[in-house]
Computed example of a mutant assay.
Amino acid sequence: MKCGYVALIGRPNVGKSTLMNHILGQKLSITCRKPQTTRHRIQGIKTTPVGQAIFMDTPGMHQDEKKVLNRYLNKTADSTLLGVNVVVWLLDGLYWHVYDEQIFKKLDYAGLPVILVVNKCDKIKDKQAMLAFFAEARQKYPFAAIVPVSALKSTNLDILEQEIMALLPEAAAIYPEDQITDRPERFFAAEIVREKLTRRLGDELPYALTVEIERYEEHSELSKIYAAIWVERSSQKSIVIGKQGEMLKNIGTEARLDIEKLIGQKVYLQLWVKVKKGWSDSERALQSLGFVDNCD
Score class of each variant (00 low, 15 high):
residue 69 L to N: 11
residue 245 G to L: 06
residue 85 N to V: 12
residue 289 L to P: 01
residue 246 E to D: 10
residue 61 M to Y: 06
residue 208 A to L: 12
residue 61 M to W: 12
residue 293 D to C: 11
residue 29 S to W: 02
residue 114 V to R: 09
residue 12 P to I: 03
residue 255 A to M: 05
residue 199 R to S: 11
residue 295 C to L: 15
residue 194 R to P: 08
residue 35 P to F: 00
residue 184 P to M: 03
residue 13 N to F: 03
residue 109 Y to L: 08
residue 74 N to R: 04
residue 251 I to Q: 07
residue 152 L to Q: 14
residue 212 E to V: 08
residue 71 R to H: 00
residue 70 N to Y: 00
residue 169 P to I: 01
residue 73 L to C: 00
residue 106 K to T: 11
residue 88 V to Y: 09
residue 78 D to L: 13
residue 25 G to P: 05
residue 198 T to A: 11
residue 221 E to W: 10
residue 60 G to I: 00
residue 244 Q to K: 15
residue 196 K to R: 14
residue 283 E to Q: 14
residue 65 E to H: 02
residue 201 L to R: 07
residue 58 T to E: 05
residue 237 K to T: 09
residue 206 P to W: 06
residue 66 K to N: 01
residue 228 A to Y: 09
residue 134 F to S: 10
residue 15 G to M: 07
residue 275 V to Y: 05
residue 49 P to R: 13
residue 85 N to Q: 15
residue 117 V to I: 03
residue 88 V to T: 01
residue 2 K to A: 06
residue 67 K to F: 10
residue 9 I to V: 05
residue 281 D to V: 04
residue 4 G to P: 03
residue 178 D to E: 15
residue 97 H to P: 01
residue 115 I to R: 10
residue 86 V to N: 07
residue 191 E to Y: 13
residue 160 L to W: 07
residue 134 F to T: 05
residue 56 M to W: 12
residue 121 C to D: 08
residue 218 E to Y: 01
residue 289 L to F: 03
residue 96 W to Q: 06
residue 212 E to A: 08
residue 295 C to Q: 14
residue 188 F to L: 12
residue 104 F to K: 14
residue 270 Q to H: 15
residue 133 F to W: 12
residue 233 R to Q: 15
residue 136 E to C: 00
residue 100 D to E: 10
residue 282 S to Y: 00
residue 126 D to Q: 00
residue 7 A to H: 10
residue 85 N to W: 08
residue 87 V to L: 07
residue 210 T to F: 11
residue 111 G to R: 11
residue 286 L to N: 04
residue 79 S to I: 00
residue 82 L to M: 13
residue 165 M to C: 13
residue 269 L to Q: 06
residue 196 K to S: 07
residue 84 V to P: 02
residue 84 V to A: 02
residue 5 Y to S: 11
residue 37 T to R: 05
residue 97 H to R: 09
residue 269 L to M: 03
residue 127 K to Y: 08
residue 60 G to A: 07
residue 126 D to S: 04
residue 232 E to S: 00
residue 202 G to H: 02
residue 275 V to T: 14
residue 102 Q to S: 11
residue 256 R to M: 04
residue 203 D to E: 13
residue 121 C to T: 12
residue 14 V to A: 09
residue 257 L to E: 09
residue 145 A to I: 12
residue 237 K to D: 02
residue 247 M to C: 07
residue 26 Q to Y: 08
residue 183 R to E: 15
residue 75 K to W: 11
residue 28 L to I: 06
residue 127 K to E: 14
residue 130 M to I: 02
residue 139 Q to A: 10
residue 239 I to W: 02
residue 205 L to Q: 09
residue 22 H to G: 12
residue 145 A to T: 08
residue 155 T to Y: 03
residue 256 R to S: 04
residue 261 K to V: 05
residue 271 L to T: 09
residue 36 Q to C: 00
residue 24 L to P: 08
residue 195 E to V: 11
residue 274 K to R: 13
residue 274 K to G: 04
residue 4 G to R: 08
residue 289 L to D: 06
residue 244 Q to D: 14
residue 163 E to G: 05
residue 187 F to Q: 09
residue 96 W to L: 06
residue 247 M to L: 04
residue 80 T to N: 04
residue 273 V to Y: 05
residue 239 I to F: 03
residue 98 V to I: 15
residue 157 L to N: 03
residue 257 L to Q: 11
residue 160 L to C: 10
residue 14 V to I: 06
residue 203 D to W: 04
residue 186 R to G: 01
